[in-house]
Design a protein around this nucleic acid. Structure first.
Lengths: 216, 216
DNA sequence: CCTACCGATCGGTAGG
DNA sequence: CCTACCGATCGGTAGG
């Protein structure tokens, strides 16, 4: 996500109090959106929560749409740091798949966002309504599934997973328990429900394991 | 859901125009809520959509909370009719499990609600925020999972499913692909994505099949 | 970052 | 079912 282009002149050259406030607003926005959804975010409410004036918050974004977009981008950075980065140390292929699933479940279990996974919330909220956020969610979901599929392919070529299984189908079957574990852990306020996800991932991977040595 | 108690006197004795309007409001409310969420429902918007005055709509419910509650109840009736009723003709145990999963996927595939499954939306929207709707969602989810578990138990005793598998875990693994199929079919406007759910359910049930004759 | 304001819309009430 | 209204809050603007 690092940009190769030089800093634009609309970006302040110094780490000012303004930048800290900006980050604090986005932090509160992410937390609130994970609980009540991005649509329930209001500038006035963020202002109250942070003890500043409404137009004080507004000045940082100049439109509600930009506030929403920047909130999504900030949440993507958190997801990158809390899920993708920890998993990226695992070898490609099957170990990476296991690491990605475990990193996601750990991120849910640890309550990184108070309302559960920000992007599961976003998916449910913007799966139906048309608009720029819907399109963004499509891209993000496709990327997540493609990443799983890529490592399924590597695992197949390495002989760790059955070469006959449909990659997109297996990616779907790995993703599904992650998503449901997030919703149920949040619904029942029980982080240990992520263990249902772990067992499901284990069972699905076992069923898709290379059949060279088994009779199934 | 039929009540054994006699009709209360707050229920009008005749099928009036008022009742038809009431039903028409709830129908629009269900459709809108499945797309944008129950929190995005506003009395004014429903009024505009139906071509009546705001207080004309309001008079039917007397509070937004009651509008929300009645919308959930109306959606529960749709779910009962479109999912539970079709599945209820299948024999108990494994056939009923397959019928429940297929009935759910068919209900998603047919687009019974324009924004996908009303209750998947409701789960995602009210998993985190405390309140009466959150509690209602907990009860509904528990009921759905318990129904699956009950028939898993019957299938185990009938020898159709492995007696060693954890019922709650298997119910989770059957539910997960249904939920994800709903979200992805809605996100990509592609009802055929429900087939991923069908394949997942088939694979999960096959893996949990009675091991009397297999070596796994 | 603030106060002060805009028109629109919210849930809800009064009165018919 | 309607018109007419209430106070609160919405996103956003003006001016500093």
């Amino acid at each position: 996500m690092a940009s190769p282009t030089p800093p634009r002149d609309d970006r302040p050259p110094r780490r000012s109090d303004g930048e800290q406030t900006h980050a604090a607003i986005l932090d509160a926005a992410m937390r609130l959106a994970s609980i009540e959804g991005l649509s329930s975010l209001t500038i006035g409410r963020l202002a109250r929560e942070l003890g500043v004036s409404k137009s004080g918050v507004f000045a940082h974004f100049r439109s509600k749409q930009r506030l929403q977009q920047e909130t999504i981008a900030a949440a993507a950075e958190v997801f990158e740091r809390e899920v993708f980065a920890p998993a990226s140390t695992a070898p490609e292929g099957l170990p990476r798949i296991e690491a990605l699933c475990e990193a996601y479940l750990s991120y849910v279990e640890r309550g990184v966002f108070p309302g559960g996974c920000f992007f599961a919330q976003l998916l449910a909220e913007f799966d139906a309504p048309d608009g720029p956020i819907h399109d963004e969610v499509q891209v993000g979901q496709r990327g997540w599934l493609q990443q799983l599929e890529e490592h399924i392919g590597i695992a197949q070529r390495a002989g760790d997973l059955d070469g006959d299984v449909d990659r997109a189908q297996l990616a779907f079957q790995l993703y599904a328990p992650l998503e449901l574990a997030n919703f149920l852990a949040t619904l029942y306020r029980d982080p240990s429900l992520t263990d249902r996800g772990r067992s499901a991932v284990r069972a699905t991977l076992a069923a898709a394991a290379s059949s060279d040595r088994t009779s199934t």
